[in-house]
Amino acid sequence: MKSDDQSLDRLLRSAGQAMPHPAHVEEVPFGFTTRVVSGWLAASSPSDVMGLQALWFRRSLLGALAVMLLSVGWSYKTDVTAPNEDMAIASYAAPADLQ
């Protein structure tokens, strides 16, 4: 209805007079900037933590690989130098039997 439209317009115009005026906006509250800056730095730090974790993971992986290669090399070396002749085995077993 038209009268409802007009009444609503008058209500809105009246309410508009009570809106906060831009000139009434006050200064930045005490401590506000510090909170924002620390929040910002804290929000941006997770990526650093992730980077640190990735670096740590990469180094651990390289360390584990190095240990594995050393183990393989060591077992290859013992395989090659191990006595496989019957006499050598008997000589190795004899002291064990004496015990």
């Binding site: 209500l11 809105l12 009246s14 309410a15 007079q17 009570a18 809106m19």
Partner: peptide, 8 residues
């Protein structure tokens, strides 16, 4: 104005 604002 204030009452109108509250209604709105």
């Amino acid at each position: 104005a204030a009452a109108s604002r509250d209604i709105v």
